[in-house]
């Protein structure tokens, strides 16, 4: 038993599931099941127990080289230590925001940080245009620059309540309240089912929820 526990704790970035469960929306068994998923994700290319951007992209797009502005933003926000990799603890704490049990306020705040590309505390007009252009590049949609400008302008006009030409956190909250579908992708119903999807966690579990 001692050797078994020791080998798990020695793994890079591994954290005690009980501690992670106490800090997140997950139960201990859900954290353990997430570890089964994490091990698969982070052994796809580099196999060092850490999730690299190429492995993250491979899981999202079935391609390790596909550049995507939004995947980059998600990766960077998950990588709280900003050391270029996602450790297991970072993975669990960030994914917890996407849990159906997590608060809407946390989801709204995370989405704001995602879209605040320059991390200035505001979603600027040029950032919004950059994101719409990025979306068009990855999709089959073909909109003229005039149409994109018009969509961005209309959105800023509706969201920018104090008229300073950009969107702050309070304005973002108001905008999401009017358009709740904007944070739909911030909830992953799958997360409540994670122990069913990765049942092999029972081989290593230390508790039963």
């Amino acid at each position: 038993c001692f050797c078994f526990k020791s080998s798990r704790v020695d793994r890079l970035g591994y954290e005690d599931p009980k501690i992670l469960a106490s800090e997140t929306a997950f139960t201990v068994n859900e954290v353990e099941a997430l570890y089964e998923l994490f091990k698969k994700l982070c052994s796809s290319i580099i196999k060092d127990g850490l999730l690299h951007k190429e492995e993250f992209q491979l899981a999202l797009f079935q391609s390790s080289s596909k550049q995507n502005l939004f995947a980059d933003r998600v990766f960077d926000l998950f990588d709280v230590k900003r050391n270029g990799v996602i450790e297991f603890g970072e993975f669990v704490r960030s994914l917890s925001i996407f849990h159906p049990r997590s608060s809407e306020a946390d989801k709204i705040s995370f989405a704001f940080r995602l879209y605040d590309l320059g991390q200035t505390g505001y979603i600027e007009r040029y950032e919004l245009k950059q994101m719409v252009s990025a979306l068009l590049n990855e999709s089959d949609l073909d909109l003229s620059d005039d149409v994109v400008e018009s969509i961005v302008e209309k959105t800023i006009t509706e969201a920018d309540l104090n008229g300073d030409g950009r969107i702050d956190q309070e304005e973002w909250k108001e905008f999401v309240a009017k358009h709740p579908s904007l944070i739909k992708n911030m909830t992953l119903p799958y997360l409540t089912d994670i122990t069913v999807q990765f049942p092999s966690f029972v081989l290593n579990t230390e508790v039963q929820d």
């Binding site: 999202l60 979306l135 990855e138």
Partner: peptide, 25 residues
């Protein structure tokens, strides 16, 4: 219709924001 959407509705369609794909391993 994309033209009728606001900018954030368009952006939220990105595959990079669909983390559900992480679980298809």
């Amino acid at each position: 219709q994309p033209v009728a959407m606001n900018a954030f509705e368009l952006i939220s369609m990105s595959k990079g924001l669909n983390l559900g794909n992480l679980f298809d391993v």
